[in-house]
Amino acid sequence: METYAPLMKIDKLDKYFGGLHAVSEVSFDVHPGTIKAVIGPNGAGKTTMFNMIAGFFPPTSGSVRFNDVMLTGMKPFNVAGQGLLRTFQNLKVCDNLSVLDNILLGHHTRSRSGFGAGMLSTRKSRIEERRAVEQVMPLLEWLSIVEMKDTLVGNLSFGEQRSVELARALAADPAMLLLDEPAAGLNMHETEELAGRISELKAQGRTILIVEHDMSLVMDISDEIVVLNFGKKIAEGSPAEIQNNEEVIRIYLGGSDA
């Protein structure tokens, strides 16, 4: 794994919210074709890390490089344009759109037609649109949401909406998938299903960065884990290493006073 050049290099990422030091000088790499997990107790700075990587807010200092492109300072839509597609912990689906349209939204960066071509319904834009539908349909099949494709997303269950978000991010054929607590709000059965899906994605060669609370899920699927606590990286390594790391055990098991 170390023989590959890293796909993403996070270097001394730092974030202050006023006087709160949310993330302090966290560095790690993500290698292509691997699943990297960022874990930590509530308030450890996981989501802050995630949002800085996805461009939702800028770091106070430090940098994120992806494929040798500097992501720091980019807007979210530019980050998506670089092939990094994210999901949201608190679902952000478009209630006013059908399941299919929500997923096609994820395909946005793979098509080009603009407003003019849209208004004139040019041949090229129609071909592009047809191709987009063809390309996302297998995702709907994979997540078994084909029958719901014309349903408004607002009418779906929480678990189904999570599936829609995953499909939406995958519709972009992302170079790297960013999953923000994908198991939050799922029951045990749904979490198992999710774990299976993430493993399948890895088998397809996808690179995934996952921020997660659910320890068993993370231990099952990740290749490497970064543990954050109070904004600092306290450990990094394979699931086995992390499970035997004393400080991690202290935080997670003896941390009632923390």
Partner: peptide
């Protein structure tokens, strides 16, 4: 339409 539904989602999708 996505902009109307969730501006953040539209942004995150490029």
């Amino acid at each position: 339409k996505a902009l109307h539904g969730s501006e953040e989602a539209a942004d995150a999708m490029g």
